[in-house]
Design a protein around this nucleic acid. Structure first.
Lengths: 114, 114
DNA sequence: TTCTATATCTTCGACATCGTCTATCTAATC
DNA sequence: GATTAGATAGACGATGTCGAAGATATAGAA
């Protein structure tokens, strides 16, 4: 119960792990949307990022202004060591649970469950 | 947003998929606890089962009395078709997100992230 | 037999945390 | 100032979790 990640928190953390330290709200949002096919709202991403940071699982820094049209400076996020640990635990739990699923449920593999 | 499973709901659904139709509160609880190493409370499992059933993702039936010492009759649960679909979607999302993670983060595989 | 004790298993109620949306605010460049 | 990209706020329903209370079966005592 303490330290367990929510579904969306896990997704954000993975996106963060994949994108280097240049990740920021918008890039994370579109990455998740693209890969999962869901339509993710920016607000949801920022709120989650904010909570993740409060828990010390991610760190942020304000980026420099860019040469593009308009826009506020980006806030870059990167996964922290504690975040990597939490993500690892979460994925490991999933892996332990799904391990051997195809044996009990023959259709699992065919259905794309693993 | 509609239809997405929470972290724990996913775990319960997987346990349900693994155990046949004889699954019931206690067996699900200990299965999850054993495999993930977390200490799961029975109440949490039942509440989740209840919500999952309300959403039509699992079905239940009351079992017959057993020849064991004491106890109330078991309530058996089994994953419904809609539940299989939801679980599949959830796992697929995770898979899409983690796919290729080891390329960006070389240590991922070694760390057991996949 | 009937009553109690006891072992299981399930339901309740409350409350913290997470998920999400819509609206609003900032700060860049043109 | 107009416009555009990005970040923050606030609210509220959904989930996660616990601890305690309720129900019901068998075993054994009276």
């Amino acid at each position: 119960m303490p330290g367990t990640l929510g579904e969306f928190e896990t997704l954000v953390l993975i996106a963060l792990a994949r994108q280097g330290s240049d990740a920021y709200g918008v890039s994370l949002c579109s990455d998740i949307a693209d890969r999962t096919g869901r339509d993710v709202s920016l607000g949801a991403v920022y709120k989650t990022l904010e909570r993740l940071e409060a828990k010390g699982l991610v760190a942020s820094r304000i980026g420099a202004p860019t040469a593009e049209r308009g826009g506020r400076r980006k806030k870059h996020f990167k996964i922290a060591a504690a975040g990597e640990r939490a993500l690892m635990d979460s994925l490991n739990a999933l892996r332990s649970m799904t391990e051997g699923l195809e044996a009990t449920l023959p259709g699992a593999k065919a259905k794309g469950w693993l």
